[in-house]
Design a protein around this nucleic acid. Structure first.
Length: 419
DNA sequence: TCTGGGGTCCTAGGACCC
DNA sequence: TCTGGGGTCCTAGGACCC
């Protein structure tokens, strides 16, 4: 059996965990630059605030309904996620961290366990130790565990937050209940096409013949169908080494000068290099893009990307930044209002297995240097040591007007309690 | 004034090889 | 009238996820 544990309204719940006054109150969390809504508490959902709502368009509704609004506090959410995951790791030797707020556990050899109790115990412990409410779905396949999780979440009172699909009747009942567009792996495009041929529920989908599914949705769709039928097809992905890493940002205002973009791009490159080193990868190529604000149709638009094949694999901040700035010079055009840029590094190789070339190689001393750099930045806070090409003065500032304290990762932000 | 950021996988088609 | 058959690698684009 597989269990899927999903944190309920994760970002909103993190904010609430440190601020009990928010219990039962509507909460929304905004994206970077306070742009749009990326998380909502149940109370906020009930007010009809959709996912992705543009914040300034909903300002009145927020005020009128006493909605508590937060800027995204990823330092807090990341740390809370780690706490939840480390608790879950004790519940099975095989675990896949699927996203910041979800994990699959493989329950192999748990035949003599009462899985309902096992699930309830997880929920209880996570809630007690972190303050985060969760839902648990358990089923013979990953896709069915997703379905079970949905039921557990929707009918928390009835299910105790844990739902198990362990019989054919339950499987069919669950699939008939689930609209096809809510199936994990069936998005907007596919569900539109499926509905056109009168496939409205997950159950209808499992009745289609293989060839049709294969033709319309490729092997991905076919695997999903089998998994929903209860034939285990998707297995745990245990050690996810990333194949691409990106650092991209919208700017708080428009940039017109090359020098402004240079500072930001250099910082994006440094951030990508740090993430590469964290998983011991080096990249062989990267893509840099810049573009203007697509929502400002009356301004001249410009959007360009450039893919750069590096002469050697690297994860050195210095080298990556240098190449990124060269690339920026190639695609920058004067006279535009730039709103967003980013770097995506690709084509990875283990940092120790990089092929040496005859003429040019990653600077040998950089490896040591980066080690020291990471150590210092880890100990004294991110960005303590920067490259000169980065934003040393840091004149820019992300719009984060409603940022909560970093309760768990910053010494000065830790709550004091008078007892 | 104001519109996020990060990933994965698959397929078709082109360029190239023999 | 009629123009082969088998590969690989790469890229862009589309679909999906959180």
């Amino acid at each position: 059996m597989f269990a899927l544990i999903d944190c309920n309204n994760f970002y909103a719940s993190c904010e609430r965990a440190f601020n009990p006054k928010l219990m039962g109150k509507p909460i929304v969390v905004l994206s970077n630059n306070d742009g749009c809504v990326i998380a909502r508490s149940n109370e906020a959902k009930a007010l009809g605030i959709p996912m992705g709502a543009v914040a300034f368009e909903y300002e009145n509704l927020f005020v009128d309904n006493g909605v508590f609004v937060f800027s995204a506090n990823f330092a807090l959410y990341g740390d809370m996620s780690q706490r939840v995951m480390s608790i879950l790791a004790d519940y099975s030797p095989e675990m896949e961290i699927y996203s910041i707020d979800e994990a699959f556990l493989k329950l192999e050899g748990f035949e003599n366990f009462d899985l309902q109790k096992h699930g309830e115990k997880m929920r209880k412990q996570i809630l007690k130790w972190t303050g985060i409410p969760t839902s648990v779905g358990i089923a013979p396949t990953k896709a069915l565990a997703k379905v079970a999780n949905r039921i557990a979440k929707k009918y928390t009172d009835k299910t105790g937050g844990v739902y198990i699909i362990d019989s054919e009747e339950k499987r069919i009942k669950a699939l008939k209940w689930l609209p096809v567009e809510d199936v994990w792996g069936i998005g907007r495009q596919h569900s539109k096409r499926l509905k056109a041929i009168n496939v409205n529920t997950a159950y209808d989908f499992t009745l289609l013949n293989d060839d049709l599914v294969r033709k319309q949705m490729a092997v991905v769709g076919l695997r999903l169908k089998h998994d929903l039928q209860g034939i285990p097809t998707l297995d745990l992905d245990e050690i996810p080494i990333k194949k691409n890493i990106a650092t991209t940002r919208s700017f708080e205002k428009n940039y017109t000068e090359l020098s402004d973009l240079q500072e930001r791009v250099s910082t994006f490159a440094v951030s990508c290099a740090e993430k590469l080193r964290k998983q011991q990868s080096s990249c062989n190529s990267f893509m840099l893009f810049v573009h203007t604000n697509g929502n400002r149709k009356y301004l001249p638009q410009y959007s360009r990307n450039i893919v750069v094949k590096l002469p050697f694999a690297t994860n050195s901040s210095i080298e990556l930044s240098k190449f990124a700035l060269q690339a920026l010079n190639k695609i920058f055009r004067k006279g535009y209002h730039y709103k967003k840029a980013g770097i995506i590094v690709m084509d990875f190789i283990h940092e120790d297995k990089a092929q040496l070339t005859l003429f040019e190689n990653s600077h040998a001393k950089h490896k040591q240097l980066m080690k020291v750099l990471d150590k210092i930045n880890n100990a004294f806070g991110q960005q303590k040591i920067k490259l000169a090409s980065q934003d040393l003065k840091r004149v820019w500032k992300m719009k984060q007007e409603k940022l909560s304290p970093r309760y768990t990762t910053k010494l000065s932000d830790i709550i004091s309690i008078n007892a």
